[in-house]
Amino acid sequence: MEVRTIKVFTTVDNINLHTQVVDMSMTYGQQFGPTYLDGADVTKIKPHNSHEGKTFYVLPNDDTLRVEAFEYYHTTDPSFLGRYMSALNHTKKWKYPQVNGLTSIKWADNNCYLATALLTLQQIELKFNPPALQDAYYRARAGEAANFCALILAYCNKTVGELGDVRETMSYLFQHANLDSCKRVLNVVCKTCGQQQTTLKGVEAVMYMGTLSYEQFKKGVQIPCTCGKQATKYLVQQESPFVMMSAPPAQYELKHGTFTCASEYTGNYQCGHYKHITSKETLYCIDGALLTKSSEYKGPITDVFYKENSYTTTIK
């Protein structure tokens, strides 16, 4: 009895394709271990004539594949690729409408935090270190965002349907971005203890939790000093293409032309909904596939993004 075979390709990165001759009487799992086709788990399936010449994702289970996976995804987590594939199996079914010149995501599976993050990423200057993220990001900007969303979920250790947080998501993504040249110098002034300067680099240099107003941050924000008295913390120097200011959701007025974009969060910790506000020729609110415009805006804002380049204080 002759062994019926077909020729397929296996890959971990969709760049390096490895030619395989597979036995049609055995499952993919018996031949390769966990195997995925377009995100779908085909591990328990036997090869079919229609699979001839198709590319299958496999887990990096030998040295060659491990090197290829690390170079593309910059992670050695053995569960990463499987999590990416199972997320992709959902995100490829989502709709990605162009809204006001940006790629958004039609609401499904509690994905409003991903839509808000995706919209924000198209408006701030950011370059990702893992080629996987950078490639998928370019495709997302062009309207094909399924891979990018699935990668975000995998890097953030999230599953489809789980509630997510924009600030946490951005923080994970910033860790995989090139923020080497970003720098922030802060000064804390206390009447009792004097003053202390701190220099922050990388992710810490672009994120701040405690106030939404970048102007206020430049002037000074009140913080408790270690001595128990009130101290003032203010920005001395900022070198970065953008800054992200966050605070627990509270009524906040966004003035046209003073910011790049913002995240609105309605609801409580267990259950809520994100919308995205962007400042173009007027203010726009993007909620999944829905767009509304207004000249002014007041609502429960939790993150505001500002364009920056270089700032030095005039406070002496």
Results as ranks from 00 to 15, higher is better:
177 A>W: 00
37 L>D: 14
124 I>E: 06
250 A>Q: 15
265 Y>W: 06
51 H>G: 03
215 E>D: 15
222 Q>Y: 06
273 H>E: 00
200 L>M: 07
23 D>G: 11
175 Q>F: 00
100 N>V: 10
283 L>M: 12
56 F>H: 06
53 G>M: 13
273 H>M: 04
252 Y>T: 09
207 M>E: 06
305 F>R: 00
45 I>D: 13
173 L>F: 00
229 K>V: 07
200 L>G: 05
231 A>C: 07
273 H>Q: 07
129 N>Q: 09
8 V>I: 12
257 G>K: 08
158 K>F: 03
210 G>Q: 07
189 V>P: 08
104 S>R: 03
288 G>P: 05
187 N>I: 07
50 S>A: 13
154 A>T: 06
180 D>Q: 15
232 T>N: 03
85 M>K: 02
283 L>S: 01
63 D>M: 06
311 Y>Q: 09
243 V>A: 02
245 M>T: 02
53 G>C: 10
103 T>F: 08
21 V>M: 14
10 T>Q: 08
316 K>M: 15
96 Y>W: 05
88 L>P: 10
77 D>P: 07
230 Q>G: 05
298 K>S: 14
13 D>G: 05
298 K>D: 09
310 S>G: 09
278 T>E: 06
99 V>D: 03
295 S>T: 13
149 C>G: 06
220 G>S: 04
107 W>I: 06
94 W>G: 05
48 H>K: 14
131 P>S: 04
94 W>K: 02
174 F>H: 00
237 Q>R: 10
292 T>L: 07
258 T>K: 07
3 V>F: 12
249 P>D: 06
313 T>V: 12
134 Q>P: 02
122 Q>W: 05
103 T>V: 14
146 A>E: 10
259 F>Q: 05
262 A>Y: 00
268 N>M: 15
146 A>C: 10
61 N>W: 11
308 E>P: 09
93 K>S: 13
28 Y>R: 06
304 V>N: 00
42 V>Q: 09
181 S>P: 05
151 L>Q: 01
109 D>G: 08
144 E>T: 07
159 T>M: 08
92 K>C: 11
89 N>R: 13
48 H>D: 15
316 K>S: 15
77 D>G: 01
247 A>H: 11
10 T>L: 12
164 G>Q: 01
71 E>W: 04
295 S>R: 10
142 A>E: 12
158 K>S: 08
278 T>F: 04
143 G>E: 01
51 H>I: 04
235 L>N: 03
9 F>T: 11
25 S>V: 11
164 G>I: 01
54 K>H: 12
10 T>P: 10
57 Y>M: 11
2 E>I: 07
187 N>Q: 12
183 K>F: 10
185 V>M: 04
14 N>F: 06
181 S>M: 10
290 L>E: 14
9 F>G: 06
131 P>Q: 15
164 G>K: 09
59 L>S: 13
255 K>Y: 00
16 N>Y: 14
260 T>F: 06
251 Q>L: 12
167 R>T: 08
118 L>I: 07
250 A>C: 14
166 V>Q: 03
156 C>P: 01
267 G>M: 14
311 Y>V: 08
232 T>I: 13
122 Q>V: 02
230 Q>H: 06
168 E>M: 14
118 L>D: 08
139 R>D: 09
244 M>T: 02
188 V>E: 00
149 C>A: 06
247 A>E: 07
65 L>G: 13
77 D>F: 08
41 D>P: 11
51 H>L: 04
146 A>F: 04
252 Y>H: 13
68 E>C: 05
137 Y>G: 04
221 V>K: 02
147 N>Q: 12
184 R>K: 00
22 V>G: 09
151 L>S: 04
184 R>P: 03
151 L>V: 05
168 E>A: 10
89 N>P: 07
168 E>W: 09
180 D>G: 10
213 S>N: 09
21 V>D: 12
263 S>Y: 00
182 C>K: 10
256 H>Y: 14
47 P>T: 04
15 I>F: 15
262 A>H: 05
116 T>W: 02
223 I>Y: 06
255 K>G: 09
89 N>D: 10
211 T>I: 08
230 Q>D: 11
244 M>K: 00
37 L>S: 12
165 D>R: 04
103 T>Y: 09
110 N>G: 04
10 T>G: 06
315 I>E: 15
212 L>W: 01
12 V>E: 06
68 E>R: 06
148 F>V: 05
152 I>A: 08
203 V>F: 09
73 Y>R: 03
229 K>Q: 14
291 L>N: 09
203 V>S: 09
316 K>P: 15
55 T>P: 06
176 H>D: 04
41 D>W: 02
179 L>Y: 02
56 F>R: 05
45 I>L: 12
101 G>P: 05
66 R>V: 12
127 K>D: 05
111 N>T: 06
29 G>I: 02
27 T>V: 11
296 E>R: 09
34 P>N: 14
12 V>R: 09
11 T>W: 08
280 K>Y: 10
165 D>M: 14
72 Y>R: 10
197 Q>F: 08
4 R>S: 12
4 R>I: 10
191 K>T: 14
92 K>H: 03
96 Y>P: 10
189 V>K: 13
169 T>L: 08
132 A>G: 09
170 M>P: 04
93 K>Y: 05
313 T>Q: 15
43 T>C: 05
266 T>A: 07
73 Y>M: 05
273 H>V: 07
310 S>Q: 14
283 L>F: 13
236 V>L: 09
96 Y>G: 06
234 Y>A: 07
289 A>E: 14
256 H>I: 15
217 F>G: 01
102 L>S: 09
283 L>E: 06
66 R>N: 13
243 V>L: 05
204 E>V: 08
70 F>M: 15
253 E>H: 08
88 L>H: 00
91 T>E: 02
33 G>L: 06
145 A>K: 03
113 Y>P: 02
10 T>M: 11
189 V>M: 08
152 I>K: 04
308 E>I: 01
228 G>Y: 04
101 G>A: 07
254 L>R: 04
35 T>I: 15
152 I>P: 06
54 K>F: 10
255 K>H: 06
245 M>V: 04
186 L>R: 05
295 S>G: 11
55 T>I: 10
32 F>E: 04
292 T>R: 11
276 H>F: 13
22 V>I: 06
273 H>L: 02
61 N>P: 09
90 H>M: 12
281 E>L: 05
152 I>N: 00
183 K>R: 12
18 H>F: 01
281 E>F: 03
136 A>H: 07
43 T>L: 07
227 C>L: 02
216 Q>N: 10
117 A>K: 04
9 F>C: 11
279 S>W: 10
109 D>F: 02
16 N>T: 08
23 D>E: 12
255 K>V: 13
155 Y>E: 02
122 Q>D: 06
138 Y>W: 14
316 K>A: 15
168 E>N: 13
256 H>P: 15
61 N>K: 12
46 K>C: 11
124 I>V: 01
161 G>T: 02
205 A>L: 01
164 G>C: 01
149 C>K: 02
64 T>K: 14
275 K>N: 06
123 Q>Y: 06
3 V>H: 14
199 T>P: 04
265 Y>P: 01
102 L>C: 05
